[in-house]
Every structure is written in structure tokens, then in C-alpha cells.
Design a protein around this nucleic acid. Structure first.
Length: 294
DNA sequence: CTCCAGGGATGAT
DNA sequence: ATCATCCATGGA
């Protein structure tokens, strides 16, 4: 099977992908570097450049990326079973309908951690811009189908830089946090691989010890890079959803109270519930464009 | 112009 | 223990 992408024809391999929506998953705020190309997308999965295109319940993937893609997009997650364990309330029902085929991906640890350190108080569009700038300036170039994709810079690569160099990438105050965390990881003082054996609470504590990592970022990294499907990141969107849909009368919440409620209420696959609620809210929220209706 | 964004760290009550 | 403030930057 061939497809012509840009200049060069590329050999593709087909893999089954039932209950999966590629475009939806790539647009759900988990990763920030995939680019639309032709009928599909190009991006890097770790050190490898990949082209992937969906036709119905099948993916067509650049030749050496099939297994990597299947793992990256978590095509083995039993989505129907996972969804069956989520609470069956109106908010979840609406979010599930809207997010059919959205999967929680398995991302490389450092790349996910670093990206979410740079995500603090940033819109998705700008997180993408920061990710691409870091990749183009400090990552490795890989040519694919006539275009070039860039890997995410390693911790060692970031650790060598000066803070001012990172600030030039529009990182703002996040530059210091990214640099300090990169140096901790690059020096081996912290091993992102070794902490993977820890139970949820201990893993979260280790992640929160890193500069620029608090509760929200730690939950994101646990969910997107450590297969902790219980993790429930609470950002401004999710807090809004929880307040409106589950506590419409309440005003005050003690710190951690919503986190605790979510852990108990959404359960073992709460991360899926969170991602569905997040994406549904973000994509359907009324885009206030200073309504002039006079 | 103002408001806000997949927050975190710090210091004051 | 909770709360207030600051931190940079760009899109809407």
C-alpha cells in the first residue's frame, strides 16, 4: 500500500485500530507536536519519526512504526471495559459521546514531564509553539516523506543550556524550572525510569519534588507517561466542570477536597473520565467573542 | 485595550 | 493550614 506524501511515496503498514479516533486523540491536549500532513499526521514518537493515517478502524503507519504506534496510542486499552467502569452520570455520558475513540496515550517520560512543566498557565496553542521551538532548536532532525520532524530534546541536551537561551524560546518563568529539572534528571540524581515501580502516592511525591511540578503536572505525567489511569489532573477547566456539574451549590472547597472527591467518585480509570470531561468542556465552551448584539 | 491560559512557589495571616 | 501574590507570554 502506497501513499504520496508531499514529494516522496512512502510504504505504509496497516494495523487494526478499533474504538480509536486518531485526530481526536491528537487534539485532546495530551501531546503538542503532531502536524497534519496529507490525509494523516507526522510526528515523533520518542526518537523515531512517524507518519500515521486513519481509514475507518485501521491505521496506516510508516513502515517501521507499527508496533511503536500501537503502544503509543494504547490500542490495547480495552476501551469499552474501561468506559463501563466510569460513573454513569449525565456529565460523563455527554463527554463519552463527544470523545468516542479518544485514548490515553503512553508517552515517553522525560518528554511528557518537560512538556507539562512548560504548560503552566499557557493555552494549548502556545504549549504547541513552545514544544515545536524546543524541538527545532535543540532536538534531532528526522526526515520523513519529504518533510522533517524533530525529536524532543533530551534532558542532557536541555541541561547543557543557559537559562537565558531557554527564555529565548518564550518560556518565561518556566525556563528556570525546566532547566533545574533537566539537570536533576541528566545528572542521574533522579531516575524517571526507576520511579516507575513506585505505587501512585510515592510516585506522585517523587514527581512533585521536581522544580515546576505540582499536583496538576504530576497527575498529568502519571496519567500520560506512567500508565496510572487513576490519575486525575485538576486544571482550571476541570475545576470548573466539577464545580458546575457535581457541586452546583457549593462555593468554598478546602485544598485537595475536589481531588479527593474525584479519586473516590471516578475510580480506577478516573484519568479517562478526566480526559473526556476536559476535552468536551474545552471544545464546547462558549467562545466569548465580545458579543455585539445591539 | 482587558482577560485568561491543562500552575507552582513563596511568604503573609 | 489556608490565602494572596508574583511569575512571562501571547491568543482571543
Amino acid at each position: 500500500c502506497f501513499i504520496r506524501v508531499h514529494l516522496w511515496p512512502m510504504k505504509l503498514r496497516e494495523i487494526p485500530a478499533p474504538d480509536f479516533d486518531l485526530a481526536l486523540t491528537l487534539d485532546s491536549g495530551q501531546t503538542f507536536h503532531w502536524e497534519s500532513l496529507g490525509a494523516g499526521f507526522v510526528g515523533a514518537i520518542g526518537e523515531r519519526a512517524v507518519y500515521v493515517e486513519q481509514r475507518g478502524a485501521r491505521l496506516f503507519v510508516s513502515r517501521d512504526g507499527a508496533e511503536i504506534c500501537a503502544r503509543y496510542f494504547a490500542l490495547d486499552h480495552p476501551l469499552a471495559e474501561i468506559c463501563a467502569t466510569l460513573p454513569d452520570d449525565p456529565a460523563i455520558q455527554a463527554a463519552r459521546r463527544f470523545c468516542r475513540g479518544l485514548r490515553i496515550m503512553r508517552q515517553p517520560r522525560w518528554e511528557c514531564l518537560a512538556t507539562f512543566i512548560t504548560s503552566s498557565m499557557k493555552q494549548v496553542a502556545h504549549i504547541r509553539q513552545i514544544s515545536q521551538t524546543l524541538r527545532r532548536r535543540f532536538g534531532a532532525a528526522r526526515s520523513l516523506g519529504g518533510t522533517t520532524v524533530y525529536t524532543y530534546p533530551t534532558a542532557q541536551g536541555i541541561a547543557k543550556l543557559e537559562e537565558a537561551t531557554l527564555r529565548d524560546c518564550a518560556l518565561g518563568y518556566r525556563a528556570k524550572n525546566l532547566l533545574r529539572t533537566a539537570r536533576l534528571v541528566a545528572s542521574g540524581e533522579v531516575s524517571l525510569e526507576q520511579v516507575a515501580i513506585l505505587p501512585d502516592d510515592a510516585l506522585r511525591a517523587q514527581l512533585c519534588a521536581l522544580p515546576g511540578v505540582g499536583s496538576k503536572v504530576a497527575h498529568c505525567v502519571m496519567l500520560f507517561a506512567y500508565e496510572r489511569l487513576r490519575a486525575f489532573p485538576i486544571d482550571v477547566w476541570i475545576e470548573r466542570v466539577l464545580r458546575e456539574k457535581y457541586f452546583p451549590r457549593r462555593r468554598k472547597f478546602r485544598p485537595g477536597e475536589l481531588q479527593k472527591f474525584s479519586a473516590k467518585y471516578f475510580g480506577a480509570h478516573g484519568g479517562y473520565a478526566q480526559q473526556y470531561l476536559f476535552h468536551h468542556a474545552r471544545k464546547t465552551s462558549p467562545r466569548r467573542l465580545s458579543a455585539r448584539e445591539s
